[in-house]
Amino acid sequence: MIKNISIFIAFSCIFLNAISLDTKNCISNYADNKSLRLLKQKIEEKKNLGIRIYGDSHIAADFFPNTLRTLFFKTNALGFVYAIQPKYQQNSNLTYEFKNFEILNSQTSKNINYPLGGVIANALKKNAYIVIDTKLSSKKFNVGFIFKSPSNDYAFMIKDENNKTYKLKSKKNKWSYKEIELDFPFKITALAKDAKLGGYIIYNKNKNNLFLDTLAINGAKSNLWKEWNLKVSKEELKILKQDLIILAYGTNDALYNNFDKKTFKYDLKKFIHILKQINKNAVFIIISPPTIKEPNSHFFAIRKSLYEIAKEEKALIFDMHSFMKDNKGKDYWISQKLSLKDVHLSIKGYEVMAKKMYQDLIKTLNAVH
């Protein structure tokens, strides 16, 4: 049995804001036992365990993911992070300060050559800057920069806490990748107008890495990945492998009138296939969204489609709606300040939901022989 889970479950059975985690398991298991055993071993050993969540606003604010981080391990790496966080989004382990950069977002600005994740920081003028610091205890990391220059000249200068300086240069308008060992905080200065950053990959080189990163954007639908440069994205995916991949889409798909089940399933399954090519032994968890009460939504059609995808792709599926229903439903969650009146949960609601998913995942893994 995975260590400390019995203590966790005993604690979790206490009512949290009148919500009980001790309901039926809300994870349905369609995965193969080999992958589940490998994941269980990784979680027990807490060595080189990588978890990634792709999703929408339920993930982008980082309340749900950060609760999972504290439950899985003591984070010692950051994985992939955006160059700058879009509005209403955050990474709980990082702080950003910037000037004269604009954010290009694949959810709102289409037909741009986006790298993995679909967020670009574009320098509006020369000497635009970004300062990044980490809240983790360690301050020395290998930092990989995804960047692009408007010319064949240098695009950025990097200066870290020890005043070590580096310059980044790429071929004109070609996404490039460069890794540098840096001490946080560090400052990135644009050496040209329209120099672009597509994110960072931050990890411990040649050491143990325990990270849970997120590629989530407010308003994202399940086909958002189609806005990303697939060739570039695949190269980025190869840098850090994941053992557990969580897909949290469906809410925004459910709210659009032009929902087509066949297209929805095809797009999400194709994305899963792309991720499986790079992470062959990874376990996938599909998250079915929390309860949606908006009239004319396609919520139940989406929920049914996600279950079908989980079965067809041999994944786990965690049903947020089922957990809410087992605890008196959305109106009760609203009364307990665990849910907003729209499609979102409250901060506390996301924390409770993450604890439930973690508990049910551990139960599922412990049942595998």
Rank of each mutant, 00 (worst) to 15 (best):
I112T: 05
E102R: 14
N48H: 11
Q90T: 15
E102H: 12
N111Y: 01
N93P: 08
L68C: 13
K99L: 08
L78N: 06
K74F: 08
F72E: 09
Y114P: 06
F98C: 06
K46Y: 05
G79L: 07
H58C: 04
Q85R: 06
Q85D: 12
Q90H: 12
L71R: 06
A77Q: 08
P86A: 01
S57P: 02
P65M: 09
Q90I: 13
Q90D: 15
N76K: 03
L71T: 11
G50N: 10
Y114W: 01
N100G: 03
Y114T: 06
Y54E: 07
K46I: 09
N113V: 04
Y96Q: 09
P86M: 00
A83R: 03
R52L: 02
F72K: 09
N93R: 08
A60P: 15
F72Q: 04
Y114E: 01
K87M: 13
I84N: 07
L94M: 03
R69D: 12
T75C: 11
Q107D: 13
N66A: 09
L94N: 00
K74M: 11
F101Y: 08
T95A: 04
F101D: 01
V81K: 01
L78Y: 06
G55K: 01
Y82E: 10
L68R: 12
L49I: 11
N93F: 15
F101V: 02
L78D: 04
N76H: 07
K110M: 08
N91T: 14
I51Y: 00
T95F: 07
H58Q: 08
Y114M: 01
T75P: 12
N111D: 13
H58F: 13
G50T: 14
E97G: 03
G55L: 07
L49P: 04
I84H: 06
L71M: 13
N66P: 05
N105Q: 02
G79V: 10
Y54K: 03
I103Y: 07
A77W: 13
L104N: 06
I51P: 00
F64S: 13
T67R: 15
S57Y: 05
A61Q: 10
I59D: 03
I53Q: 04
Q90F: 13
Q89P: 13
A61S: 08
F72W: 12
N100S: 09
I59W: 10
Y82C: 01
R69N: 08
P65H: 00
Y54V: 11
Y88N: 15
F63M: 12
A60C: 11
G50F: 07
F80Q: 11
T75D: 09
T75H: 08
I59V: 15
K110H: 08
H58V: 02
K47E: 15
N111A: 00
N93L: 14
L68N: 11
Q90P: 09
L78A: 09
